[in-house]
Amino acid sequence: MNPQALIDGLVAGSTIGLGAIGLTLTYSILRFANFTHGDFLAWGAYLTLTVAGVLGGLAAGLGAPVYPFSFGWGLPLAMLGGVCLTIVLALGLDRVLFGRLRARGADTIIIVMASFGASMALRSLLEFIFTAKPVYFTKALQIANPLGFGMRATPDQLLVIGLTLLLVVALHLIVTFSATGRAMRAVAENPSLAGVYGIDVARVVRVTWIIGAGMACIAGVMAGLLVQIRPYMGFDLLLPLFAAAILGGIGSIPGAMIGGLVIGLAEAFAVQIVGAEWRAAVAFVILVLVLMLRPQGIFGRKGA
């Protein structure tokens, strides 16, 4: 077996894990499986691309690659803009759709269905605006440097893994130790009791969307940088995202990350063993195994 699968898996797993964080948070705090989350990744990538285009028009120097990476300062700047816009998108969707259904006391499953409809509409809107043709952040080619043990990685890939690690640790510390984090856990536990206790539930909901959409945008940009940007990129990641969130245990940020890495690695090894055409089935197999053997996930509690 080719040890390169280890690097490929870690890189893909970083994207999945980062994307699954938002999913696991909305799942535990807003209490519904959000099918639009995959499309937040795709929208994040396209919004960042758009901002990058505008920035490139303003200052051409931003596009020049910064050694050793394949992109210039324009991309991180554009990503900041993309993150903000994706957050606006998520909050807007909550305002017009999910929030209204929640306020009406609609069943969880109605909200899930609405998210399913919204996901179709969002994805097709991307296809309408940008067409189905894949686009790229950069056309620069990168040489993969040897890391030893027969593994190679490009600087971009190493940056993605490092940035993901940094973000997850930071998020985990914030959610564990800050007052906002405690409020989030309280709402996840029991929203009405948390409200009675004086926690601003609406604010917690906002923070949840902000973290989720922000992480989704970053994950989308990473996937776009390392692979390509397509309207269906988020939809194709949706099953791995769900599998990662459930494998890690709903509501757990480190769980989502570890779940993502497990799925990424399993996919990479499956590609070597059974072939690339079955890659998308790996997440499903893992999902079924988790549901059969440990439905609460790695870090989840029983009875959830």
């Binding site: 259904l101 409809g117 996901s119 179709m120 509409a121 809107l125």
Partner: peptide, 16 residues
Amino acid sequence: SLQIVIIGVMLCIILL
């Protein structure tokens, strides 16, 4: 793809 957008929005509106 606009067709799909229309049906998706219609679904959400009816749910609302």
